[in-house]
Design a protein around this nucleic acid. Structure first.
Length: 272
DNA sequence: CTTATTCCCTGATTGC
DNA sequence: TGCAATCAGGGAATAA
């Protein structure tokens, strides 16, 4: 499940490989009817062919390929999507949903077991990322902003962290990790979190994301970088998928519960 | 506006 | 052991 650190790793890896390259030809599997948004797949392939990649950006969990002529190619990997570069990391797989041949002979393959991934080809970026909240690693994500967004929500705090309109890029892994670092129970009502604790959560979010980014993301099940390699951070998480294992701080068994419809892992002693 | 629930999809896991 | 039911999860859609 690629979240901000994984998507950012993909962006950094792909940038030197794709910048300045032209997409010579595109193919979309007829077995992936929901992949291309807003356009028929054949129209998407026709319009993207011949375009040069000028830059690659990221907003939340969205990859944004800036193409010539002001076109934007947006990609969301959802649960199991992978972008693999070159034949070496594009093994024969029944889960190949789209592929892009480049003018240097390389191939970019979109592999996605569960078919939740989505792509856009638009003039207007707002059609892709219009509803996203601030980037958690940018300057406009401040402790004061976090406190203000928590204040007006009565849902469990974890639900707010997962809300892409509140903060962009946090998913199930890093929501749990950030809440552990801040010592906050995931079920706590967001609007019951005082300014001081919100500031601690702000720090926890940044730490969790930056540490994972330093390890090139987490590979719990499906995530691979564009070369087909795993990230390293799943070996270092404090709570995520550590059910019944001892907390590294106090030794208490990590618990798993359902919060906001998602599996949630926390230390009942460190996170009251 | 909010929050909760369902759906998409398929391999892995659980339960009888 | 074996097969069916349930689970996992991002985010859109729908319900309340």
């Amino acid at each position: 499940m690629p979240e901000l650190p994984e998507v950012e790793t993909i962006r950094r890896d792909l940038l030197p490989l794709l910048r300045g390259r032209t997409i010579a030809e595109a193919w979309v599997s007829p077995n992936a009817p929901r992949l291309i948004q807003l356009l028929p797949p054949d129209e998407f392939c026709r319009q993207i062919a011949g375009r040069r990649v000028e830059d690659i950006e990221r907003r939340g969990k969205y990859l944004l390929f800036r193409l010539d002529g002001g076109l934007l190619w947006g990609v969301h990997l959802r649960m199991t999507g992978r972008l693999l570069h070159d034949a070496n990391s594009c093994p024969e797989t029944p889960y190949l949903r789209a592929s892009f041949r480049l003018d240097d002979g390389a191939r970019l393959c979109f592999v996605d077991l569960r078919k939740f991934g989505t792509m856009w080809l638009v003039d207007d970026e707002a059609l892709v990322t219009g509803r996203l909240g601030p980037e958690p690693l940018s300057e406009d994500f401040t402790p004061a902003y976090l406190h203000s967004v928590l204040k007006r929500r009565s849902a469990p705090v974890k639900g707010v962290l997962l809300d892409q309109g509140a903060i962009a890029g946090i998913g199930n892994i890093y929501a749990d990790e950030a809440l552990f670092r801040a010592g906050i129970n995931p079920k706590r009502a967001a609007n019951s979190i005082a300014k001081q604790r919100a500031a601690r959560l702000h720090g926890g979010i940044r730490e969790a994301l930056e540490l994972a980014l330093g390890d090139r993301g987490s590979s719990f099940r499906d995530y691979l970088d564009p070369s087909g390699r795993e990230g390293g951070h799943h070996l270092k998480v404090r709570v995520f998928r550590r059910t019944a294992e001892p907390c590294y701080v106090c030794g208490t068994e990590i618990r798993r519960v359902k919060v906001a419809g998602r599996s949630t892992h926390y230390c009942p002693k460190c996170q009251r």
